[in-house]
Amino acid sequence: MTTLHMLSHSPFSDSRLSSCLRLLGPGDGLLLCGDAVYALQPGSAQCQALELMPESIGLFALDEDLSARAIAGPQRLQAVDYPGMVELSCRFDKVNSWL
């Protein structure tokens, strides 16, 4: 079963992203919301790690959080709005939020 992992903490002061990256399975998705979009900060090790994830892993971010922080994200990133977030939660078999 595929999992959409949701993160909302900044990865610079928190271990959720690194723990999540180790747990990701092929075909899983990673949705960044809130301060977690800082992981897409260009030039950061975190952004590099996200770009190096296998192709089969979908990388998504909530569009309002990207615009609020003026972050564009790498090529492979797909920005989604709330309806898009709902669609993602239907697309993957389950949603795992890293609370």
Partner: peptide, 10 residues
């Protein structure tokens, strides 16, 4: 439910 979605933390 078909989907459980949790929100929290930050």
């Amino acid at each position: 439910a078909d989907r459980l979605v949790c929100f929290g933390g930050s």
